[in-house]
Simulated scan of single mutants.
Amino acid sequence: MTFMKKIIFIGFLFCTKISFAQSTLSEQEISFNFFRNPSVGLEYRYKKVSVHAGYYLTNFKANTTWEFVKTGLSFWFLPIGKREKPSSFYAQMSYLRGQNRDYKNKNAVSLDLGFRLMIWNGLQARLGIIGLYAKDKNLKINPTPSLNYSLFF
């Protein structure tokens, strides 16, 4: 078996193990998002879909900040662990409106994939990667870390 086939096989076994250890997400959740992912703002989740809105800050190059107003949808899948509030993966689609620099008053869209780690009660950390695109601009890829707090219903 080639090295790549071994990696794929091990990944398949890992995913199978995860699927058997899955929990379920709570019915509803409100998140206060303090940094970048999905934005500095609020998010409401019902079952496996959430809507978010807020202010998104990012750095496409060192020591330079771009600012956007951001709103969109997140889809939650593969809850992991046996905790009451499990960690899980997410995928986001968002609309952004540039607020400064070369994106000022420009529309953009983004896709973000990542993982939310539940730390304690509603405290969570997210780590994702975003692809941001605007007309007449190159696709930008950036990490999207965050620290958030959720209330569950």
Rank of each mutant, 00 (worst) to 15 (best):
T2D: 11
T2E: 06
T2V: 00
F3E: 00
M4S: 11
K6G: 10
I7S: 03
F9S: 10
I10D: 00
F12S: 13
F12L: 14
F12I: 12
F12T: 11
F12W: 05
L13I: 15
L13Y: 07
T16W: 12
K17G: 14
K17A: 12
I18E: 05
I18P: 06
I18N: 01
A21T: 07
A21M: 10
Q22K: 12
T24K: 11
L25E: 06
S26F: 02
E29H: 02
E29A: 11
E29L: 04
E29T: 12
I30W: 07
I30E: 01
F34N: 00
F35Y: 06
R36M: 15
N37F: 05
N37C: 05
P38K: 02
V40D: 02
V40C: 04
V40L: 09
L42R: 00
E43V: 03
R45P: 13
R45Q: 05
K47Q: 13
V49M: 10
V49L: 14
V51T: 14
V51I: 14
H52R: 03
Y55D: 03
Y55H: 10
Y56W: 15
T58I: 15
F60D: 07
F60T: 10
K61Q: 13
K61W: 00
A62D: 13
N63R: 12
T64C: 05
T65F: 04
T65R: 08
E67S: 15
E67W: 03
F68D: 05
F68V: 13
G72A: 06
L73D: 04
L73S: 08
S74D: 12
F75T: 07
L78S: 08
P79S: 02
P79M: 01
G81Y: 00
G81C: 07
K82I: 11
R83C: 07
R83D: 15
F89G: 02
Q92W: 01
Y95V: 09
Y95M: 04
N100P: 15
N100V: 07
R101D: 09
R101Q: 08
R101M: 05
D102H: 04
Y103A: 01
Y103M: 10
K104P: 15
K104W: 01
N105L: 03
N105V: 07
N105K: 15
K106R: 14
K106S: 09
A108M: 00
A108K: 03
V109W: 11
S110E: 12
S110T: 08
D112N: 15
L113C: 01
G114P: 12
F115K: 01
R116V: 15
M118P: 14
I119A: 06
I119R: 04
I119F: 04
W120D: 13
N121Y: 08
N121A: 08
L123E: 00
L123M: 09
R126S: 12
L127F: 13
L127A: 06
L127V: 12
I130M: 12
I130H: 06
Y133A: 11
A134W: 05
K135C: 02
K135N: 14
D136M: 01
K137A: 09
L139C: 09
K140L: 11
K140D: 10
I141A: 00
I141M: 10
N142S: 13
P143T: 07
P143M: 11
T144M: 06
P145H: 04
P145A: 01
S146P: 15
L147T: 10
L147C: 12
L147E: 05
N148E: 02
S150Y: 01
L151D: 00
L151H: 08
